[in-house]
Amino acid sequence: MQGPWVEKYRPQTLDDVVGQEHIIQRLKRYVEEGSMPNLMFTGPAGVGKTTTALALARTILGEYWRQNLLELNASDARGIDTVRNDIKNFSRLKSVGSPFRIIFLDEVDNMTKDAQHALRREMEMYTKTSTFILSCNYSSKIIDPIQSRTAIFRFTPIKGSHIIKRLKIIAEAENIKATDGALESIVYFAEGDMRRAINILQASSTIDKEVSEESVHEVVSKAKPKDVRKIISYALDGKFMEARDLLRELMVVQGTSGEDMTTQIYQEVSKMSMDGIIDQDSYVDLIENIGKFDYRIREGANPRIQLEALLTKFLLKGKQPTT
């Protein structure tokens, strides 16, 4: 029982971590010294933030790393109370069998400012016994005091060649074949996200023992949130209510995130423009708006409302029925 490949082939040591050499080198120096400052890993999804944090903890904490690591992910309640209680209780105890204790918190950018401030205080209080590793997608959403108290490591999307290398290792270990074309297109769709790349590979391998470009395309198109094309078409036809209802259904029931939806809308609109369904002027206009709302989603409170607003931008771009 080793779980999905993303887990089965998660690098266990710092040396195995792919594509973040400069970061790994600096981290290894901490291992040599046996101590480290508070760290913050920022970067997009699937580039190795969690993997690196776990590998680092394993290496630097030694045999009893499990007992001396507290991992809190964003789904755990992480209000001020958690920060005050759980983290405090963990970090004020002296480590046993390890030089210190590590608290790993992911998606810190999704914590409220209040919780971040509480966190900052904890970070100062227990420097003797504990060290924090924080990870986030956008360091701009982290309050300054935390930023100034951490060594920031910026993870970048993983290069295609690194992804291919990794995928080949997995394919060999799993005894499956993947054509070069298949690997290339996985890289294309993964956009530097190793988790996605491996998931595409594994899903493709269930379709076909020899993973081909076609099976990869099949997987990728199946993995897309459905109905996005339909939503756009409704909006272009001026059927705003229908478009809105479908969007709501998609986001609420399937839980599609605002960011995912924006990416999908962007891709569909690009395709529709290629197919001549959307003319070029409108296309440029729409892309400008998609970008604008992509940004607003990150600022606003409710991504769904922002996307509904984006849909209104399509209303005047379709064939104009006279009103």
């Binding site: 779980g3 993303v6 964003a74 789904s75 992911d106 988790r195 998931n199 839980g255 995130s257 995912d260």
Partner: peptide
């Protein structure tokens, strides 16, 4: 898999 709901849901 050391991931939040949001990340898992995307998978």
């Amino acid at each position: 898999t050391h991931a939040s709901r949001r990340v898992v849901r995307e998978q």
